[in-house]
Amino acid sequence: MNKPLEAVQEPAVEIRFGQVGLAQVRIRTTDAGVILDELTGRVASAPQFFERTAVCLDLSALEKEPSTSEMRGVFDAVRRAGMLTVGLAHGTAAVDALARSLDVPVLTQFRVQGKAAPVQAPVKEVPKAAPPVEAPVLHPPSLMQHQPVRSGQRVYARNSDLVVTATVGAGAEVIADGCVHIYGTLRGRAVAGARGEVTARVFCQEFHAELISIAGVFRVFETLPPELVGKPVQAWLDGDDLRFARIGG
């Protein structure tokens, strides 16, 4: 039944798609006691960070498919540790079935990271089409910075990408939980994946960086690699290694 067009009332619901930060918990056991113990310790170490945080359970490391009742036990352990399970990470058909019987969604990563993910030459990599099943994730728009980021200034894009259309000066810091894009010269520090997102990248138009960090892996440039100086460069994480390459040749 369609509402008349002239209805002035706003719709009761508004559906938007986007990305949100989500803790992914890979479990190696379904023993609720063990999980509760370990998670309680983690939450106690950084309560403001972990308390009531949304959790996506990744079952890929389990040796055999867990039963629905085992999973209920795990959910309960997570909740008692202070976190809230919102879904299961995308996996096999069995995971889909499990999610259905537990009445939770299956959440898909943009880039599924398996242990045996093929190593590609990331510079030439064509962005893959988004996976067909997209979980409804919220994403705040990228933080835009159109003024130069001067020495001593710090710009942080929480839960999103950071786009800088000006220069980042020496001694300045640009930080994002997602990627950092700089359409100017980068002379200062750029930190992507500040809260652990390993797929985050740093892009800049002219590379003179002091430091690049992605998900905690960083490199200080005491001397700049001559093949990268002043060039458009991107940086990404390959396992535990930080890699750099020119963009476009």
Partner: peptide
């Protein structure tokens, strides 16, 4: 130059 950049930020 570095100090001036800082001042411009302020």
């Amino acid at each position: 130059v570095r100090d001036s950049d800082r001042i411009l930020g302020l």
